[in-house]
Design a binder for these strands. Structure first.
Lengths: 242, 242
DNA sequence: ATTAGTAATATGCCAAAAGGATATATGTCA
DNA sequence: TGACATATATCCTTTTGGCATATTACTAAT
């Protein structure tokens, strides 16, 4: 029996199959820093480290459906901008058993982020420290609001790092920035989101021009309130789906 | 028992687990058209339709390793530029049983493409027809060299379409174009690859300027042979990994 | 040999886009 | 009413890309 015949006759049911899970990167921009929601593990392995909310994929459940189920049950959130990121399949990424994990990321405006923290009290708000610049990529570090390091479980530092890299790459040709903002926002807030994701500051007039030229912002005529100086105009986003 | 406790107590071994496979998109540019290598299925389901080379992921094998194994055993090729594309997990994508497939794509220069066709005679060269423009995305169609339609198995038309979309997106900030060219190539050949992937023609002087300005091409001083007119200079690519 | 033909290569010009500095406008608050 | 802070507008410079055209280098035929 040659190799081809062997592979053609391969019956997956006769062999062990890996478990398949989804992990959710719940990302936002809080106080001018990238942030994510984490859970502290209460069991071995990686006891007491922080991990992404996740769950196993049911046999009659699509990957996307599994990601949405985790969003609903573990984060108690109806829906969000959600997108598949990458599939992590190293043999030893989970010391217990073979688990292949499909990472998804969801982008949330700060208000929904805060609501999730209230609805699911076991969630922790983590600031993400991105120790690389540009399109280098690599793992990121997580810190609590108090500045304490939050060690990450499994390969979740890589997952978060890849999510940050993907966000950077998609920033200027997709709607990801708007998914991180409330319905109404100022141009300054939009620029803050861009600067946070890119990890560098941007020229203000050039940024304004670029955004307004894209024809995806609609001015509301309303202005922000509570500012102790000239309030900025509030804009709304509409995707130009032609 | 509440939902959280249920999920925490979830033991994947007590439940059916999906099979996990990898499928390989072997892409190249042949005669100014995007092309891929396909296998005609000899069994149900999707009997006699064309499919991507693939295989199941072993329990002690990483996803990347499985992709390379398929490349070696089914395409008889030692190595290539290979990259994970996307994971397809619709419940009914395979009518037999639940199979989650991680799609990879490999980029090959035409010469290695031809060598693969010789080494693995069950492979078929298919031209890809991309029926959408820009970054729209969607499935693509496959045709034989004679122009006959090659119906694609499972969701492989979507996989190929996503690969084409990914190639378009990565074209101007990565080395994908060079992975589709031989060691030595002319600027015209490089431009042809770009035009094929983008599906539109490009301005020649502007393209030259852009490529030479990127500082990733090294002129060899040698010239192409066999042309019945002024032969173009041959270049080599070196990635600027700083 | 000479010349036509073809495509590579080089150059110059123009318009559009982007960066950056500065000026002006408009709100809050003392 | 005026100081102040930030939004918004304008100007200028640099860069980038499209496009046209000229020049070069090779083949092939007369």
């Amino acid at each position: 029996m040659n190799e081809t015949a062997f592979l053609d006759g391969y019956d997956p049911h006769r062999y062990d199959r890996p478990s398949v899970a989804v992990d959710l990167i719940l990302a936002s921009v809080v106080n001018g820093r990238p942030a994510a929601l984490l859970l502290q593990r209460s069991k071995h392995p990686c006891l007491a480290t922080w991990s992404l909310p996740g769950g196993f994929v049911g046999i009659d459940e699509s990957l996307d459906a599994a990601a949405h189920r985790v969003l609903e049950t573990k984060v108690r959130m109806a829906d969000a901008y959600i997108e598949q990121l990458y599939t992590f399949g190293a043999v030893d990424r989970d010391p217990r058993t073979r688990v292949i994990s499909v990472a998804y990321f969801a982008l949330l405006p700060p208000a929904r982020f805060a609501a999730a923290l209230k609805a699911a009290p076991d969630l922790t708000l983590a600031e993400l420290i991105v120790p690389w610049s540009g399109e280098t990529g690599g793992p990121v570090e997580a810190r609590s609001q108090d500045g304490d390091a939050l060690p990450l479980a499994f390969d979740h530092a890589d997952m978060l790092g890849l999510a940050m890299l993907r966000l950077r790459g998609k920033l200027d040709y997709s709607d990801v920035a708007f998914a991180l903002l409330p319905e109404l926002f100022t141009l300054r807030a939009l620029q803050d989101v861009h600067e946070t994701i890119l990890g560098r500051s941007l020229n203000k007039p050039a940024f304004r021009r670029r955004m307004l030229a894209a024809n995806t912002l609609v001015a509301t005529g309303e202005r922000e309130t509570g500012a102790s100086f000239r309030p900025a105009e509030l804009f709304r986003h509409h995707s130009t789906q032609e």
